[in-house]
Design a binder for these strands. Structure first.
Lengths: 262, 262
DNA sequence: CACGATCCTATGTCGGACATAAACGGAGCA
DNA sequence: TGCTCCGTTTATGTCCGACATAGGATCGTG
């Protein structure tokens, strides 16, 4: 893509207007109920034509973030109306809503609910190809840790981590669960980036990942469920996100340690 | 927006082009990998300008259903890439993909996984206002059944049923779970419409709904989880969707009857 | 003060024009 | 002969200018 606008200098990076607006909304520049600038103002602000601006706004409409009222303007909708399950919104949310504790907390609560169950489904339905994908991601995490720059085959440890979780979602062989992985992917990436500090924590985290993988391989749904919870518990500890135990499914598993703090 | 149809003078019943294309895609007219007609052809076909056609196509792009390749055309993407969690796509899916048994089955499997857990969260977090909403929907279902045309306050029994489930999602007070309700709403509506046949079945269904509501009111998460499963089991029976028991979480609940068909 | 007609604003739609990306096909060269 | 390279074709991406339309705000009148 390119520029070809009236800008005399080389404006190589055309800013994604939809994304910029989304960032502004997520960061609170335009709060729910507010109006974003009208089309013509945005045209001037970004030096693009009205078509381009309208295209960007339509993206935000599709994301449920703004509502366009003919003759009045484009108003930011309430947070609850946003399509948080849209991969694009999820991506923006992960990148722009970082410091927002509420969103962060709810995403984590959601993961705590979803991933154990997904792990169970994966343990029940994983094929050889799924196991291979999971294992590849796992070994990528290990290998990356062994390198000084935490890179393996050009991919960071964190990305392998994300791929690991993604592969588990895919192993459910259910369209909707797989979709949720796309949604959660940016969120997982965000949480992964901001956790995993010390070497001890990393080792512990890797061991929990390994147990999860093994449970899926051995077709042990309940162990997989518990192991997924264990992985998340590790993440939650790293993030200092406690108090979510009320959201945890109360498992009664013989061989696996309980997680309740009480 | 919506069509005030019967405006026969000029552009009668402006058809939502995005929706029509979506219907064509869902019904298989354009299969994944195929190209939809190019913009200019669509302009002629619908007698609208290119802007309008582009707007519609962009909607489909936002839905992940088509990928536009500059200079080549707009190609239908693979089913797995569609944003099935987008409320709009979910709505189309419910209305246009009815006979598709695979999608139907996966939606139901998804519900079986999600709704019990949501019921648990609702039992833990429901406020008085949430309980009121649930109860209102429940009584709407009852009242509607008592009328000859199954309407209560102008709303059908099925719609009250949908509202019932929606209220439970909202009671989780988690943004993402509530979002899933928006996604599942059309699917629930579809399943509700095509089930609930005889009077006996309806009575049984209502009783299961009542138990679910009571469990939420009494803050009994495990009972609520089981009751939600029970409601879905009833639906599954109505639909002849068996064989999903492997997807059911194995609950060990003392006071509530087991649900396994075996 | 109430109420309706009018104006105003910003979005929705239209039509045409040129720029751009990707696949196709033919010319030139080793 | 086989390969690369470059134009052509095609359909999308962007731009511009204009008018139509939907709401809200305003103002006038009874």
């Amino acid at each position: 893509m390119s520029r070809a606008t009236s800008s005399p200098n080389n404006r190589a990076t055309r800013p994604d207007i939809a994304e910029q607006l989304a960032e502004a909304i997520f960061s609170g520049v335009y709060a729910p109920g507010d109006f974003v600038p009208k089309e013509l103002d945005l045209c001037e602000q970004y030096s693009v034509s009205r078509s381009t601006v309208r295209s960007a706004l339509q993206t935000l409409v599709a994301a449920g973030m703004v509502k366009r009222i003919s003759g009045q303007g484009s108003r930011v909708r309430e947070l609850a109306e946003w399509h948080l399950l849209d991969p694009r919104v999820s991506d923006w949310m992960a990148r722009f809503a970082q410091p927002n504790p509420r969103i962060r907390r709810e995403i984590f609560a959601f993961r705590v609910a979803v991933e154990p169950f997904v792990a169970r489904l994966a343990a029940e339905n994983a094929t050889a190809a799924d196991l291979l994908a999971i294992e590849t991601a796992y070994h990528g995490m290990i290998r990356a840790l062994e390198t000084p720059d935490h890179l393996y085959q050009g991919v960071s440890h964190d990305d392998h981590d994300v791929a690991f979780h993604e592969a588990i979602f895919a192993a459910t062989h259910n369209l909707l669960w797989s979709q949720i992985s796309h949604v959660l992917k940016p969120a997982i990436a965000l949480l992964v980036e901001t956790s995993n500090h010390s070497a001890d924590e990393l080792n512990d985290s890797m061991e929990r990942h390994r147990l999860l993988m093994e449970a899926i391989r051995l077709r042990q749904p309940e162990q997989a469920e518990a192991a997924a919870l264990s992985v998340l518990e590790r993440t939650g500890l790293d993030l200092g996100l406690e108090g979510l135990s009320s959201h945890l499914p109360t498992l009664r598993l013989p061989g696996v340690g309980r997680l309740e703090p009480s």
